[in-house]
Each structure stands twice: as structure tokens, then as C-alpha cells.
Design a protein around this nucleic acid. Structure first.
Lengths: 144, 144
DNA sequence: CTGCCACTTCAAGCCGACTTGAGGTCAAGC
DNA sequence: GCTTGACCTCAAGTCGGCTTGAAGTGGCAG
């Protein structure tokens, strides 16, 4: 079986060796063995690193990402917890959509004061529903 | 006109006064005047803070957020730049969707090794198109 | 006029996420 | 068998994003 040296992983993933060691120490990834001193990584680690990059870009901390995908790449967490994470991401998606639409709106709407523009306010309000912890606002849809 | 004390802004926004001062220093918000020493904020600042919170949650740095919404809450940037930001957010949304679907998949798919599951790999690949800033990793050197 | 107390500034401290540097190891090529 | 160089460890440094603490200010109630 062909394993990867940390340098190869770095090259293929775009993540520096120092960061990879840091991730390993943090329990996000793990090397499968050693060749002398050198860590050997299974090729799957590249997939895990992509997942980690996605989580980071989404604004999750390494701790949170570690909570989603355990060191072997897969969550051994209860399904309910995973679904809760997925729901959290759904909320972020809604925020991002609102943010994107807000940006596009202000780029195109020539109103002097956007703060008074109802379209603008509605956009900003969109993501606010349930944005705080434990919202009391009843959201009729929790589909998917 | 009714202005807000920093304490009121903190209470209504859920952001600590120290952070609000920090944001002001960073040019993300601005107080409209002083009452004695005390900063007075226009109520609009609450909307701006929501925007800032959205950006933060989306994984943008304060600097990037400042680049989207200038200190008066509105971008004075060229439309093209704003649209570029919106496109960047679109990319993040796609990543988040893939991440969410991946999580939901691994929560429900009882396969022993997800790394071999084609559904899983496809999901992970979805967002991967040009995810990193400096993408040196998409050189097809040698497969595994 | 006197306190009170929420505010102020400024400097230092803290945490997360790495990076950097010094000094050490070891397998492979000459 | 010696050199090379990619790896190793561990400690310290850096940067962003705040928080904390000390020392000061000033509007307002009593």
C-alpha cells in the first residue's frame, strides 16, 4: 500500500507540513504509521483535509470541525448530533444567502440611504430569524 | 433624535462594549457623536452589527467585512468589487451545502468505509473546485 | 456639592491557529 | 561509511480578535 510522506500531503493539499502536524496534534487527522521518524499518511487524508478546509472556510473552528469528523475522517457521533451540526450549517447557509443578496442589492440599488430601503431591511432581517441561540420564533419549516 | 449609549447597543446586539469599541477602532462602525465622553450610536448601527455578525459567522475576517461594508454601513466600492464579493460568498455557500450534505450522508449511510462510498466522494468533490486561495494542489502529478 | 457609576483610554493579556527556528534523526544515494 | 536533506521535536513567536485591569471623567440623583 502506498502511503504519503508529509511533504507529499502538503503538496497535494496545499497545506503546510507545520499545519498538518498541528492538525494531527489537534486530533483532526492521523498518520497511519512511521517510516523511521517520518509520518506516513493514508491517501484518504486528502479527502479529510478537504472537509477540514470546507469547515474552516465556513467559519468553524478546528474544535468544531473535530467534533464533526473524528480523527479517522468519520463521525462516530450520535446521528442526532450530526444532524444538529447539519442544521447549524443550514442556518449559516441562510445567513450567507442573505449576506450575498444584501451585497448584490446595495451594489445595484441607487437609493441614497439603504438603511431606509425596505428591500434592504428585509434582506438583513432574513438571516436573523433563529440566528441567536435558542430562538423562540417558530419556524414552520425544518425540512430536509 | 434618540441615540444609543454603548451599553444599550451592547444589550440589543449581544456584543460586548469592548468589542464594539474594537470594531469602531477597526473602522467597521462609527459613533455619531459623544455625550461627554460617551459614544452615541445611531440606531442603524444595530443593522450594521447584524451584517458584521453574518460576515463573521461566514468565516470572513473583520478586514474583509470592512471591505464589504464601509464604516457608514454601506459599500462605497465599485459595483464590480461588490459583485466579486458576492460571488465569493456564492462559492462558500456551495461549500457549505456540500459540507451539510456530506454530514447528513455520513449520519445516515451505514457503510463501513465512507471513503470508498461514491456518494461521499462526489459530495466532497463538489465544493472542491477551486476552494483554496493559492491552488497549487490541483496539478495532476500522479494518482496515489 | 457629593457621590455614584457607566462610561472613557491605554496597556497588557489571552486564545486559536499556525509559523519559525534551533538542534536532532535517519534512510538512501554516492 | 559518509553526506544529504527531508523529516523530526519542542519552544517561542506572530497575528487576529477580542478581554481585562488600572486609572480617569463627567452627567445626574440626592
Amino acid at each position: 500500500m502506498k502511503f504519503l510522506d508529509i511533504g507529499e500531503v502538503a503538496e497535494k493539499s496545499g497545506i503546510k507540513p507545520s499545519a498538518l502536524r498541528y492538525y494531527e496534534e489537534a486530533g483532526l487527522i492521523s498518520s497511519v504509521s512511521r517510516h523511521g521518524l517520518r509520518r506516513q499518511f493514508a491517501p484518504e487524508v486528502l479527502l479529510q483535509l478537504k472537509l477540514i478546509a470546507m469547515g474552516k472556510s465556513a467559519g468553524f473552528s478546528l474544535g468544531e470541525i473535530g467534533g464533526m469528523f473524528h480523527r479517522d475522517g468519520m463521525p462516530n457521533l450520535p446521528r442526532a448530533v450530526i444532524h444538529a451540526k447539519a442544521d447549524e450549517i443550514d442556518r449559516k447557509i441562510r445567513e450567507l444567502v442573505a449576506l450575498r443578496d444584501t451585497l448584490r442589492h446595495v451594489a445595484d440599488c441607487p437609493a441614497p440611504s439603504h438603511m431606509e430601503c425596505p428591500t434592504f431591511r428585509r434582506l438583513v432581517d432574513m438571516a436573523g430569524k433563529r440566528g441567536a441561540r435558542r430562538g423562540k420564533w417558530d419556524k414552520p419549516k425544518r425540512a430536509t
